[in-house]
Design a protein around this nucleic acid. Structure first.
Lengths: 318, 318
DNA sequence: TTGTATGCGTTATCAT
DNA sequence: ATGATAACGCATACAA
């Protein structure tokens, strides 16, 4: 293993100079700096993370806390995890997972936390962490967070449906009291109001068979030229199935737009037009924001809403 | 932060005794041991991973190397990642991700590697790692590995189809030269031979539209009472679609059995009978095997084939 | 069985 | 601007 000392010898300087070239390059003359950099290159010096961590009172580990009781095969969270891991790697950080509330305080220490699935009741838990923390998912309690711009997403979908000349726009929402859902509904409502149209919202739990059942039960009420704006791809898929069961023609007479764009939209048949969340990028951004917060010893980072993207496929008119 | 010294003071012993209680409890008298343990409990002592790592010349980090160029939303890999992370956490290990071959040698050091998606050409790369390594996925080059028992899986599926009285059993395989595919075909072939039936295998690339197209093109050749044993859920879904397009009745006249059981099978309609791989558990086992290998300074661990589970749902007879 | 001294690789403090 | 030294928390070798 190549250490600081080795590099120092090779460059004929002290360990400290090498250390400074790495951490405070401005404090060292250009001449020596180049010497040291050359030495590091020829020896292929890789700093020892453990030693660094020990000296800095750091751990080089970030914990990802998933408070929601998720089905771990849910591609959404998996994509997020992937993005976070990638973002951390870039900075030499590693990742640990916490899926149980009880294990939050236990185990190894970490330099910071990324929390997802936090509900109001969990906020005290988060405060108790006493370490830099970043939340995944909209919230309005002053915690730093990153999320998709949900409102922009449904606004985008609604505008698109209008542009494709669907006359009636119905929103199918998820029956939860969460900020993301309110924002998605708001994006739809605002856009319709701008176009002097009346919103029409139905809420149900987030399963395709729920929306399928709902459409079947109310089929007679939906005229041709209706586009269903859905709060999730799961709901959208159920709607597609119901329309086909009832003999409706997609996309000519009925349009369907989903939300999420994680795997499900691509394997459905016909392929779903959807508002795609940049989930993996969100993960990378979470990592970046948290590491910056750690570097700034816990300074407030604010909120970051990332624009989703409308993916036009086969459930809306060309 | 509570350190060894704090515990030592509290228990009126030296640091070394505390250290021994942790690492070599048999070397310390029961009396002192209990004292120390009490002290650790009252102080809620958490060992400092970085210091431990530095002293042991370890990193407490494992790298997961994904050589395949995967779509990161593929739930399969994500589930695996999740399982590995969980398994590592239990032992205080953290995870780093490597997705690019070039970055394999670079970056922080690690105590060991879990490699997935390795092809024959990658084996030199793996040897070059010079660290304990465990492979995910069948291989027969002497590397330690863990995988689903693919042969048992298709054997299980074939037996099940026979038990449900499907007369003709057709296998749809994936057109790759990989050990897992050979094993899946072997499980099917062996079982049919035991029942004095002739195997019938068709291979294609792993996309639902491929299998859908294939069934459509050959529809006339498939008599009623045929069950399609598929090497993946993707293929199975395409088969289901094609059968329905052609007016076949599932599961009465035609059966379909998939392979994988990761997400796709549940969102399909009708829900798929499938051979479910315990992917997350495989991840945890990979972590466990690798950590054991690290602890045994690289000793051979052998191979581990984990039985999959047949999930009977709506594409086979009750 | 238990305690003392030393080193792991790095960084910060204090000299020069 | 550069270098010597101590310190981070723990584990090993050795001494008692």
């Amino acid at each position: 293993m190549v250490t600081l000392s080795d590099v120092a010898k090779q460059a004929n300087v002290s360990k400290m100079t090498v250390s400074r070239v790495i951490n405070h390059p401005e404090q060292v003359t250009a001449e020596l700096r180049q010497l040291v950099e050359a030495a590091m290159a020829t020896l292929d010096y890789q700093p020892n993370a453990a030693a660094k961590a020990l000296a800095n009172n750091r751990t080089n580990v970030i914990k990802l806390v998933i408070l929601e009781d998720i089905d771990t095969t849910e591609p959404y969270y998996m994509s997020l995890l992937f993005g976070i891991a990638k973002g951390l790697d870039k900075c030499g950080y590693a990742l640990q997972l916490v899926t149980e509330r009880e294990r939050l305080g236990k185990g190894n220490a970490a330099d910071g936390f990324i929390v997802t699935g936090a509900r109001a009741a969990d906020l005290p838990l988060i405060d108790a962490l006493a370490k830099p923390t970043v939340i995944f998912g909209e919230n309005h309690n002053g915690y730093d967070f990153i999320d998709t711009d949900n409102k922009a997403g449904t606004a985008m979908a609604t505008e698109y449906a209008l542009a494709k000349n669907y006359q009636s726009l119905v929103f199918l929402g998820i029956d939860v009291k969460e900020a993301f859902e309110y924002s998605r509904e708001a994006g739809y409502i605002n856009t319709l109001q701008q176009h002097k149209k009346l919103p029409q919202i139905h809420r149900m739990s987030n399963h395709s068979h729920q929306s399928q059942q709902f459409i079947n039960a109310h089929w007679a009420e939906f005229a041709r030229d209706t586009c269903f704006i859905c709060a999730s791809d799961r709901l959208a898929i159920g709607v597609v199935r119901a329309i086909m069961q009832n003999g409706g023609t997609i996309p000519r007479d009925f349009g369907v737009i989903g939300f999420d764009g994680v795997f499900l939209d691509q394997v459905s048949n016909p392929k779903l037009t959807t508002v795609k969340q940049p989930v993996q990028r969100l993960g990378e951004l979470l990592a970046r924001m948290l590491l910056q917060k750690v570097a700034q010893s816990g300074a407030q980072q604010g909120e970051l809403l990332v624009d989703p993207e409308l993916i036009a496929r086969d459930t809306t008119r060309k």
